[in-house]
Design a protein around this nucleic acid. Structure first.
Lengths: 192, 192
DNA sequence: CGCCGAGTTGAACTGAATCAAGAAACGTGG
DNA sequence: CCACGTTTCTTGATTCAGTTCAACTCGGCG
């Protein structure tokens, strides 16, 4: 259950087996079935979630009822409503399993404990968040500079398996267009 | 020169005077005049920059020659091309002073040294980057969910002084519209 | 004085949204 | 294992927010 988390942490920092044993005690393993929610809009985000296996998404629903996907959480990634997790206020996002998933959850108090007791993890999380920030900045700039078609083709070339695992209307709402528009873009692309 | 940095660090972590004296030795103070560049697209981003006083912006120029602003760097904020700084590859962004500014610069080797010698700063930077990530995610979602007019009015209400300090065409390129569009939105707003 | 960057305004255009309808794929219960 | 309802995807017609191109004004500064 903890293999992937152990591997991921070891990729960025050195962690002793003893420290990792301590890490284990603070996480709550959870299986989540497809279409089940880990977090509903309005509820405080009690857990930060590491995805050992499966696939989740975090998304928001606007006034018109349209979904907007902030993030896909694939194996080895973290997913949460960060602001809600840190402050305890009601969440702006929903988090839902797109596949049957195995998760490792940690509460804010446990996370604080963990960072104090295993200070080396500060660096792990700093680098994790740093990479996430870089990726989010890139996505933001892409949304401002390139067309919907380019955003689609780049996404597919970077995450080829996404089109097998995620329904098209969700890919549309990730790149920031309607399902109809993405459908038309795809048919254009296939007719060269 | 280091007052604001000291204050900012002290707001998030406890740092001894001795440690802060050490911090001081690793930064390079620099004054940058209006319209001068700290970083040009293509050059590696050698420094991460703390803004003691003044105002900078980081931006990209697309194939059509349009500017897109990633970030404004106000007093007390950090600014850099993070990816270039961390990896050493050529930068995607330009960084330019919008006002006469006083900066504190640190190189990657010095920053690495700093984090190893003053481990408490890992937490400071983790939290700094965390807040930046939250803000960037919010901006991304706003771009996908609300109209240009709303993005403008929200920006102005959150940073009221921005409209005094930054020319309108840069505000336009920050919210992701052309200068003409922003000009029209503003005249609509003023005629209720 | 003349020039340049910043802002405004108008007209034509366009990429994407919206509204509407139907076809295909899926999965759940009987 | 089939039947039915739901979700997903497609296609067409229309509308709309924002872009593009072009011309003009204003203020500051060398």
């Amino acid at each position: 259950m903890f293999e992937l988390l152990h591997k991921k942490i070891n990729e960025t920092i050195d962690i002793t087996d003893q420290d990792f044993e301590h890490v284990k005690t603070l996480f709550i393993p959870k299986k989540l079935r497809k279409k089940r929610f880990l977090l509903q809009e309005g509820d405080p985000c009690v857990y930060t979630c590491f995805v050992e296996r499966g696939l989740l998404r975090s998304f928001r629903i606007d006034e018109k009822g349209n979904e907007h996907i902030l993030q896909f959480g694939m194996q080895g990634w973290w997913i949460a409503d960060l602001y809600s997790f840190l402050t305890g206020v009601g969440s702006q996002y929903n988090i839902e399993a797109l596949e049957e998933s195995e998760l490792l959850l940690i509460t804010k108090p446990s996370w604080d404990t963990l960072l104090n007791e295993v200070p080396a993890l500060e660096r792990y999380f700093r680098i994790l968040i740093q990479n996430n920030l870089i990726a989010t900045q890139n996505r933001l700039m892409r949304n401002m500079t390139i067309s919907a078609e380019e955003r689609y083709t780049k996404l597919i070339s970077e995450f080829p398996d996404i089109s097998q695992r995620v329904p098209q209307h969700m890919i549309a709402s990730y790149i920031g267009v309607t399902r109809e528009t993405l459908s038309r873009l795809r048919s254009q692309i296939s007719h060269q």
